[in-house]
Amino acid sequence: MGRYTGPKARINRRLGFQVYEDAGARKAFDRRPNPPGPPARRRKVSNYGLALIEKQKIKYYYGLREKQLRTLFDKARRMPGNTGENLMVLCERRLDNVVRRSGMTLTRPQARQGIAHRHFQVNGRTVKTPSILVRPGDIVTVRNRPNLKRMYEGVAGSDVTQRAEFLSFDQSGPRITVTAMPDFGDVSLPVDVGSVVAFLSR
């Protein structure tokens, strides 16, 4: 799956969760939270279907392609500990998610676009890859350009509801410091990781 450009509210309704956070998708979901399609055609979802929905939540929420998700899954499986929890922690460590969870952007697509356009630096080095996995001690800053600093300072701090505890945010920079390795308790997406692991292990 490439980058999804279709109706975001439709995905939210299909998955029963607001994986897309922009205002239009949230309002549409609040108006019509039921799945798309005629009610008469809706059938009981099988276990396979439920597991697929949980997997799709992760893909859309973190903006992952199928190959990216399976690459992270293979890495999580080789790590010690619970595979499902490891998978979610790897997703949380992605640079685009860190920028979003700091409150510097309002959505993950917005964070990914800014990174791809070279708006951010990690430890003083300009980056353009949203999938970079951060480590404790990493510092994420906006490039030293007045227009970029004004843009992100205007957004920073406007939404702190999802600010992660493993991040320290300095709005004056703006500057993000990764203070610790995230754990499963820091994951902001409610998902049945057990069913996702079973699905990806098929």
Rank of each mutant, 00 (worst) to 15 (best):
R3I: 11
R3W: 06
Y4I: 07
T5R: 09
T5C: 01
N12I: 00
R13I: 00
R13S: 08
R14K: 14
L15T: 07
Q18T: 15
Q18M: 13
P33R: 07
N34C: 06
N34K: 11
P38F: 01
A51G: 02
L52N: 06
L52T: 14
K55Q: 13
Q56T: 14
K57W: 10
K59P: 11
Y60H: 15
G63S: 12
G63A: 12
Q68V: 09
Q68Y: 07
R70V: 09
D74A: 14
A76D: 03
R78M: 05
M79A: 13
T83L: 10
N86I: 07
R93K: 15
N97P: 05
N97G: 09
V99Y: 02
R100I: 01
T105N: 04
Q113P: 01
I115Y: 00
V127M: 03
I132Q: 04
P136Y: 05
D138H: 06
D138F: 02
I139N: 00
P146A: 08
Y152N: 09
V155K: 13
A156M: 11
S158D: 05
D159Q: 10
Q162P: 00
E165M: 05
E165N: 07
D170T: 09
G173R: 12
A180D: 09
L189A: 04
V197W: 10
V197E: 04
A198H: 13
L200N: 04
S201Q: 13
S201V: 03
S201K: 13
